[in-house]
């Protein structure tokens, strides 16, 4: 069913990571990404991979889901490995025709690959264990300081959550319009790229018109329910840090310190 599509890639489960406050997870992800760029030794990369493995186990999300995100960066991954492997100068390991592979090349290629994989998987852990709603809430709350420089944080968060609410509705509507047009003889399947793109016009125009009508009605309904921007708003479920969040913050900082120490000490 179209109405059951899940947005983002939230994987429902009951784990420590699922229970963490979204702000903690956002912060943790950020620190993890920063620490990945501090890595410049095998030990550091080992620590990063180990931390990731622990998080994957803690999250109770099947490993297959974790690595789905990697498909999107497969090409990028291959390109970076390719260039690092063949175009790094240094101590030559072997040479085929004009291609030389150096020791430094192999090392950089492996490091880059690990770094990219950890980056994407680390971010996936956050999106897999956080519902889009609480992610939006977390973003609104933790980016609140941007209001000082006139970034409309509340408005952006509100738009995000409304978009999440209406995507399934619009998907269903697209389906309806498509069927209605097909019943009138429209053909969305055949023809080349240009013909297909042209066939989308009778689909997109009604969809846009309807989306605008919905937006107007929703705006009226929101005003009727006293919406007047983010000022003075309270929340049904305000975000509150629990004990596990405090523990998590301590661990996150400990991890960061560890990575810095490794960077300084190990050459």
């Amino acid at each position: 069913m179209l109405r059951d599509i899940t947005l983002g890639q939230y994987y429902p489960a009951d784990s420590v990571l699922h229970r963490l406050d979204p702000r903690t997870k956002l912060f943790g992800t950020m620190i993890y990404i920063v620490s990945l760029f501090l890595c410049n030794s095998w030990i550091a990369y080992g620590a990063a991979v180990a931390a990731l493995a622990i998080l994957i186990i803690l999250s109770k999300v099947p490993v297959g889901f974790m690595f789905r995100g990697l498909k999107a960066i497969l090409v990028l991954l291959l390109i970076s490995v390719f260039f690092n492997l063949f175009f790094t100068s240094g101590e030559v390991v072997f040479r085929i025709w004009f291609i030389t592979v150096t020791k430094e090349g192999i090392r950089t290629a492996v490091w880059m690959a690990v770094r990219l994989i950890c980056l994407v998987t680390g971010a996936s852990i956050m999106t897999l264990t956080t519902t889009p709603n609480s992610l939006t809430d977390g973003l609104e709350k933790s980016l609140g300081f941007l209001k000082v420089i006139k970034v409309p944080v509340h408005e952006i968060a509100m738009m995000m959550s409304i978009a999440l609410r209406f995507i399934p509705i619009l998907v269903e509507e697209t389906d309806k319009i498509m069927k209605a047009q097909m019943a009138r003889g429209a053909d969305f399947e055949e023809g080349g790229l240009v013909a297909k793109a042209k066939a989308m016009i009778p689909l997109l125009i009604p969809l846009f018109v309807s989306a605008f009508r919905r937006a107007t009605e929703l705006a009226t309904a929101m005003e009727a329910r006293c919406y007047h921007g983010g000022e003075g708003r309270t929340k049904l479920k305000p975000l509150k840090y629990q004990t596990i969040d405090r523990v998590a913050y301590v661990l996150i900082f400990a991890f960061l310190v560890l990575m810095i120490i490794i960077k300084i000490k190990v050459k």
């Binding site: 709603n133 609410r165 009605e217 929703l218 929101m222 009727a224």
Partner: peptide
Amino acid sequence: FQNPDNQIVAN
């Protein structure tokens, strides 16, 4: 309002 979908704001 008339349209149930267009007046529900939250998920």
